[in-house]
Amino acid sequence: MPIEIKHASYTYFPGTIFESLALQDFSLQIDDGDYVGIMGKTGCGKSTLIQLIAGLMPPLEGQIIIDGKDINARDYPREELRRKVGIVFQYPEVQLFETSVEKDVAFGLRHSGLSKTTIAENVRWAIETVGLDFEAIRAESPFSLSGGEKRRVAIAGVLAAKPKILILDEPIVGLDPRGRAAFLELTTHLNAAGVTIIMVSHNADAIAENAQRVIVLEDGRLLINAPAKHAFRDVALLQEKGIGISPAREMAHLLSACGHPIPQDTIRYQELLPFLINIGKGASR
């Protein structure tokens, strides 16, 4: 069952001089198993949107429905939501606190009602899924790890609950190129295993290379909601709105402008390369 956001509105500090509208009559459906990239300028409502989906706060108007149930209804089982939806905040590594990696990853499951053996299995699975060697790292202090490893441990802590929906807020900021690639591969791997991924990022390349659907917000409203390959079509619009464009799409756009038409749904490098080769062979002839 999908995530349905129905006419949601949210305003911070309503009725004060600080009043600011974050989301306005916002409706959106996210299907199970989708990989959604969310883009938009700072202050466009991205973070508010993911906090509503994660049920961290209720919308002032409208409904958030997950698996057919209004998650803000009085009788909705919140603990079910916590297990279903995992959220990884920016710089999740600052939230590490336990004395060992294993304890830190297991912490969120302490009151889950799961048996000790299930918890231990989930913890091992989560640590291995983020690409770390469980036996080598389980007893280490999380604070002795490198930045990239810390972030993986923090994400393992969210994965250990085996969420069906994983929300990631700017997860690759501060990671080096190889760390970024490894992390993005992890997200596609989880997505292939059926986890719905919702990733907020300013990095258009990461979104174009991985997401199936792209959502662009502007001033609390939907500007674009389209399959990823169509989302970057209107380069002029995106530039005007200050939204990032994937490098491959930007290249295709520039080449189209100088007489080498390349389809507008070319957003990934591997899709662009055959066109570059063709143009290159023509030019050198």
Partner: peptide, 18 residues
């Protein structure tokens, strides 16, 4: 580190004889 798109393309084109 990974090279930016233009440099990646330069070497991929070279492999194709361009």
């Amino acid at each position: 580190l990974t090279p930016p798109l233009p440099i990646r393309a330069y070497y991929d084109l070279q492999k194709e004889g361009v």
